[in-house]
Simulated assay, not measured.
Amino acid sequence: MTLLPFLARHARWLMLIGLAFGIAVPQVTQFVRPWLSELVAAMLFTAALRIGPRAALGAMGHLRGTLGALLVFQLICPLALIALAAPFGLLDSPPALALILLMAAAPLASSPNLTLMVGGDPAPALRMLILGMVILPATTLPVFALLPALGGAAGILDAAAKLLLVILAATGLAFALRPLLLPRPGPAAFAQLDGASALLMTVIVLALTSEIRPALIERPGELLGWMALAFAANLGPQVLTLWLRSRGGRPEALEALAMIAGNRNIGLFLVALPAGVTDPLLLFIGCYQVPMFLTPLVMTPLYRRCHARAAGLGIAGRSAITGKDNGDCNAPQSRR
């Protein structure tokens, strides 16, 4: 079969087509949205099957760094936003609430797939996804306690537990079946799985953009404001993380960290918080899908340049310490 490898080669454009179709024909949402949980589970299964348990779990030494990064993303960042908004009385404003909830959310379920599409290793993203969901109830408690509009975090505990169960079931099944289905995976098998992931993500986007077209027709000014906020909230943290990691000469997990810095599962809060809180945020959540699914198309060159720069600086630093010549440190490094 050549269809899935073809979709894998053109995954970025396929997602753009799905995004445009979902905005142009919002009626398709009624066919896709009831299957959203199953689609997410299938996408996680495909990603975990491609990565495998050994790469996904990694060495125990990675756990400390992964946990530290997640605490910065899911706890320190939203608390910092609260500290900035509170003196101005903005905690109840929809834009501030949207940004705080976005920063408090766990990594997006499609983070491993998006990381792969920009040329990175998806294994660290999968580790962060699983651990981020595990610690989500604990990290949301202090954040929600400081947001009077939310009235506590009881709802999120149940929703987080359900999503964590889906993640563990899908990844666990994939890890168990990998020795049987992919005992010695090669490029052809990876191409099939990458194509399946691209197709699943394209279908999922159809269920998440239904609010954009009505807003474009009825209130275009409001849509423009929310869209600008969504692009800044999604791409801004990615660019900042890429810049910091590349300046520090740290290419390890660069793509996964940058991707998760800007891509969070804010949709989880739709099933956990009162409708009075989430309804004003539906348009933002719809707009947020646009930069999310455009990331592989518009950000891949930046990801590659930052990885090459970080790798070059890292080699230069090691050369200075060891006194060995490691060649041209500015040359792009060999990528997977």
Rank of each mutant, 00 (worst) to 15 (best):
F6P: 01
A8P: 08
R12E: 12
L16M: 14
G18D: 11
G18P: 11
L19G: 06
L19S: 05
F21H: 01
T29F: 15
Q30V: 15
L44F: 12
P53C: 09
A55M: 10
A56L: 10
L57W: 14
L57A: 09
G58C: 10
A59P: 04
G61V: 13
G61Y: 07
L63E: 05
V72Q: 06
L81G: 01
A86D: 06
D92Y: 05
P95C: 03
A96L: 07
L97R: 09
A98Q: 05
I100A: 00
A109D: 04
S111D: 04
S111R: 02
L116K: 10
G120M: 11
P122E: 03
P124T: 07
A125F: 12
L126H: 06
L126D: 03
M128Y: 07
L131I: 15
A138P: 05
T140M: 15
T140G: 00
L141W: 15
F144R: 00
F144W: 08
P148H: 03
G151E: 06
A154I: 06
D158E: 10
A159E: 07
L165A: 13
A169E: 01
G172N: 03
G172H: 08
P179S: 04
R184P: 00
R184K: 07
P187N: 08
A188V: 11
A189Y: 07
A189T: 08
F190V: 01
L193K: 02
L200T: 06
L200G: 02
V203P: 01
V203S: 00
I204R: 05
L206T: 07
A207E: 02
E218P: 04
R219A: 15
L223Y: 14
M227C: 13
M227W: 15
F231R: 11
A232Y: 14
G236F: 15
G236L: 15
Q238F: 11
L244S: 08
S246H: 11
R247W: 14
R247L: 13
G249M: 13
G249K: 12
G249D: 09
E252Q: 15
E252P: 05
E255K: 07
M259P: 03
I260F: 13
A261F: 14
A261E: 09
G267L: 10
F269M: 10
F269C: 03
L270N: 10
A272G: 05
A272K: 09
A272V: 11
L273I: 10
L273R: 07
L281N: 02
G286T: 06
F293V: 04
T295F: 11
P296G: 05
L297H: 07
L297G: 00
L297T: 06
M299P: 00
T300S: 04
L302C: 00
Y303N: 00
Y303E: 02
A308P: 01
R309F: 10
G312E: 05
G312Q: 05
L313D: 01
I315W: 10
I315D: 03
A316I: 06
A316W: 09
R318M: 13
S319N: 09
A320S: 04
T322P: 00
T322I: 06
G323C: 03
G323S: 03
D325A: 09
R335S: 08
